[in-house]
Amino acid sequence: MIFQFFRKKTQSDSSNTAKARLNNVLMADRLKVSPEIMEQIKRKIQESVGQYVDIDAADIEMQVEQKSSGVTLSTKLPIKELKKKR
């Protein structure tokens, strides 16, 4: 609580919005695919990975990074619940 008190009241986060938007346009630019295709990729991942673990297409995060080894597509798939079948 003391932290709250001393922290400035007007904490905004438009920079996070900027960062997220930038990531989206760069992903499309770097892969040369449209945002719709990116959404399709997410749905396909959900379809295939979703057979084994419970994930939501809306939670999937994708990022295209320029690394020295080349362009890399990394995805983060937050799991809702482990499926109880084995």
């Binding site: 920079s15 996070n16 960062k19």
Partner: peptide, 18 residues
């Protein structure tokens, strides 16, 4: 502006452009 969260930081930009 960076400090109050209203501008991309140098770290953000470096992460993205590498």
């Amino acid at each position: 502006l960076v400090e109050r969260g209203d501008m991309l930081s140098v770290e953000d930009i470096c992460d993205i452009l590498a």
